[in-house]
């Protein structure tokens, strides 16, 4: 089956069995390796991508579900100023995620900040609970998201507003 969709702002199509997992299509057909294959049960969050702007576990989505949709992976998202805010925030706070969960944490932070530009610690902790990884200190992660939020606010509204 030929499936067409938008991937990182480019129109693409792929010949695939419709029930193939999106994560496998992204990694194997398009060589997008930022999202990692984790538990394949929608549990760990390592495979997160954005589908039509919403955070989804790419391991649980059959590829036909992205038909005519828009998929953004970390490879596309890293070209945006939103990514730069988060990257800077994480580096400022010393967040050191592993390469397995990093893209999921970045995309989760982005979705959180879209909905809540100034999240509290409790909100950040709850949002980040969807990524099951031992790699980094949780308090640094909280600080990282707060710093990213501050960066985004400054970029959007200027430093003194």
């Amino acid at each position: 089956m030929k499936i067409t969709f938008t991937l990182n702002s480019k129109d693409v199509s792929v010949e695939s069995s419709p029930d193939a997992r999106l994560i496998h299509i992204l990694r194997e057909k398009f060589g997008l390796l930022g999202a990692k294959e984790g538990c394949l049960q929608g549990h760990c969050g390592y495979c997160c991508a954005l589908l039509n702007g919403e955070l989804v576990p790419a391991c649980m989505l059959p590829v036909f579900s992205v038909f005519r949709g828009s998929v953004t992976t970390i490879e596309g998202f890293r070209e945006t100023p939103d990514f730069t805010d988060i990257e800077k925030g994480f580096i400022q706070a010393g967040v050191d995620p592993c390469g397995y969960c990093a893209s999921a944490k970045i995309l989760t932070a982005h979705k959180l900040l879209e909905k809540n530009p100034n999240p509290t610690e409790a909100v950040i902790r709850k949002a980040m609970a969807g990524i099951v990884c031992r790699c980094t200190s949780y308090s640094a992660l909280v600080e990282g998201v707060k710093a990213a939020a501050a960066n985004r606010r400054v970029r959007s509204h200027g430093k003194y507003r």
Partner: peptide, 15 residues
């Protein structure tokens, strides 16, 4: 190193 990880450029055996 941090930048490379955050940008999703880190490569493991599975990659």
């Amino acid at each position: 190193t941090m930048q490379k990880i955050l940008e999703g450029r880190s490569v493991y055996v599975a990659d």
